[in-house]
Computed example of a mutant assay.
Amino acid sequence: MTSRVSAAIDAARAEGRGAFVGYLPIGYPDLQTSIEAAVTLAENGADILELGPPYSDPVMDGPVIQEATTAALAAGFKLRDTFTAVREITSRVDVPVLVMTYWNPVLQYGVDRFADDLAAAGGAGLITPDITPDAAGEWVAASTRTGLDRVFLAAPTSTDDRLEMIVRESTGFVYTVSTMGITGERAQLDAAARTLVARLREHGAAHACVGIGISNAEQVAGVLEYADGAIVGTALVRALRDGGLDGLAATAQAIAGGTKPRSL
């Protein structure tokens, strides 16, 4: 089964550019607005959507995203709202939708049930930041059965053996962590990301997208000199918070400008 996520990256590459992966939390500032925000993001340059169900213990999220997910939980977000959102978004745009979720909510919901409901809603797969492939046997089986993508994370501290396993078990792309620590904007992206992508290539990774700390078109362009895609989250959440859907659209367009070759 062809990965829609890989296909989106390949389609961007065929246009001579890298892919823009945009993250937003589901349910912020409310469920319907978060759906409109995701559609807005897809219509303003995002090649792949990464949607995060709010979680009460977001160990990897920086303050802007934590603030948004806390507000969504306070407003009554339930995990089943994930599938409602994905279903409506995928009925309106063709951009593949990945769900970025911590593992505990999937376990609580039921791994097979989660996979079935996500596939039925038109979702493309999961990004799972806090589970490694060797601990994810149930998810590997469920995703293989349903044709969903499995995006695992690789960090600069990962050993070669671990990178080999991550590349082997990931589909869609490998989520390449640019710096160790939480998400958020950084003035200078860690050079470790470039080295890590090179190591992933040595282990056979066809698609590597870099996330954590990327917030503007210039940083996107820098990452795309060596990676297949750039993942942006905090800057988009802040744009939605401060400027609503119009602010989000303008920020997404500006960031998407960084995916184009500099000669154009």
Rank of each mutant, 00 (worst) to 15 (best):
V5F: 02
I9K: 04
D10V: 13
A12D: 09
R13Y: 13
E15D: 15
E15V: 11
P25G: 02
Y28G: 02
Q32S: 14
S34M: 11
A38Q: 04
V39Y: 05
T40G: 07
L41K: 02
A42V: 05
N44H: 07
I48L: 12
L51V: 04
Y55L: 09
P63E: 10
Q66G: 13
A68K: 09
T69Q: 14
T70Q: 14
F77Q: 01
L79Q: 09
R80Y: 08
T82H: 05
T82L: 08
F83S: 09
V86F: 08
V86P: 03
P96Y: 02
L98D: 01
L98G: 01
V99T: 05
M100K: 08
T101P: 01
Y102E: 02
N104Q: 11
P105D: 04
V106H: 06
R113A: 15
D116W: 11
D116Q: 14
L118I: 03
A120N: 09
G123C: 02
A124N: 06
G125Y: 06
P129I: 06
P129Q: 09
D130P: 12
A135T: 08
A136L: 08
E138P: 04
A142L: 06
S143T: 14
R145L: 13
G147Y: 00
L153W: 03
T157D: 10
D160R: 12
L163C: 06
E164N: 15
M165V: 15
V167I: 10
R168P: 06
G172D: 07
T176K: 00
V177S: 06
M180T: 15
A187Q: 15
D190R: 10
D190N: 15
A191I: 13
V197S: 09
A198V: 11
E202C: 07
H203G: 02
H203D: 07
H203L: 06
A208W: 01
C209Q: 05
V210E: 00
G213D: 10
G213T: 08
I214L: 05
S215N: 11
A217W: 01
E218K: 13
Q219L: 11
V223P: 01
G229F: 01
I231T: 00
G233R: 00
G233P: 00
A235N: 07
L236R: 00
V237W: 01
L245W: 07
A250I: 08
A252R: 01
A254D: 14
A256M: 02
T259S: 06
R262V: 14
